[in-house]
């Protein structure tokens, strides 16, 4: 039982990290109809710049802020330079964002060096609690709480505020929103920057969790993010949380019980979903 609980917490924490990555992807896709293959690059830039600020300032909170700022800035650059010229053209979007991903992850190696960097958990989050037989690592609980808080904030913004209303309306019908006199380009930019900042934030939280950061992890996590977006349904925010938890749990349990299948299980899951239910598991057919 204690094994089950620790695997469960482990999977949940991983799921929350993937959720931070996938939520941005799914919103960007739902609103802008852009599949951002460079999202993993933003994730890894968040991790590296956040850790850089963290070691420089000594404060984990400042490091997180640094990562979020990097995410916003890179999101702005990406939207303005890379996405704007190719709106509405899927093939070019796929090609260009993949190229940008390449540039981002190579730039990491130029700026921060090609070697992987070890990262420590800040002292007040290190260690673990013992509840009966179960050992609960503090940092994982921290990630789960943060993930749920972020989900709550975004749910609130999407459902209760004006900008959230515009975004949700934009996902349903872009032309109509434009007809009603809203500058949808500004909304696009806002959503893109927020999504990028979330990815960068996820990368920063990821760094102490895995204990080491390296330039290639962007692509690895981006693939997980895509899988989550597909399973959860493109453009569905709450669907991406459910799917991320599903993927995280599947990965954690499979890694323990059937280790050689752990990497394959998510891809098989995604292939099955794409073939039989391409609109995603957690969306109504109407929305998809």
């Amino acid at each position: 039982m204690d094994l089950f609980i620790s695997l469960f917490i482990n999977g949940l924490a991983t799921g929350m990290l993937i959720f931070l990555l996938a939520a941005g992807l799914t919103l960007i896709f739902g609103l802008m109809d852009v599949l951002n293959f460079a999202h993993g690059g933003l994730f890894v830039w968040g991790a590296y710049s956040g850790i850089f600020v963290y070691t420089w300032s000594g404060s984990f909170i400042v490091g997180i802020l640094g990562a979020i700022v990097t995410g916003f800035v890179l999101g702005w650059i990406t939207e303005k330079l890379i996405i704007t010229p190719v709106y509405g053209n899927h093939v070019q979007q796929i090609l260009i964002t993949l190229g940008f991903m390449l540039v981002l992850s190579e730039c990491i190696k130029v700026v921060f060096g090609p070697n992987s960097i070890p990262v420590d958990v800040p002292s007040y989050l290190a260690g673990s609690w013992e509840i009966g037989e179960v050992i609960v690592i503090k940092y994982r609980i921290f990630i789960i709480v943060i993930g749920l808080v972020i989900f709550g904030i975004f749910q609130y913004v999407l459902k209760k505020t004006k900008i959230g209303l515009i975004v949700r309306a934009g996902v349903m019908d872009k032309e109509m929103v434009q007809v009603l006199g809203i500058n949808i380009k500004r909304v696009f930019l806002f959503v893109f920057m927020t999504g990028s900042a979330m990815a960068a934030f996820g990368g920063m939280l990821m760094a102490p969790y895995s204990g080491v950061i390296y330039a290639e992890m962007g692509m690895e996590y981006a693939i997980l993010g895509f899988i989550v977006v597909v399973i959860g349904g493109m453009g569905s925010f709450s669907g991406s949380l459910m799917a991320a938890i599903l993927v995280g749990l599947a990965g954690s349990f499979m890694a323990y019980y059937v280790p050689y299948l752990s990497l394959a299980v998510n891809m098989i899951l995604m292939a099955i979903v794409l073939i039989f239910r391409p609109q995603g598991l957690f969306t109504n057919a109407k929305e998809g």
């Binding site: 599949l35 899927h90 895509f226 597909v230 493109m234 891809m267 995604m270 292939a271 794409l274």
Partner: peptide, 10 residues
């Protein structure tokens, strides 16, 4: 196209 690119990646 999007889904195809992702699925071939997977």
């Amino acid at each position: 196209s999007h889904f195809f690119a992702m699925l071939t990646l997977a």
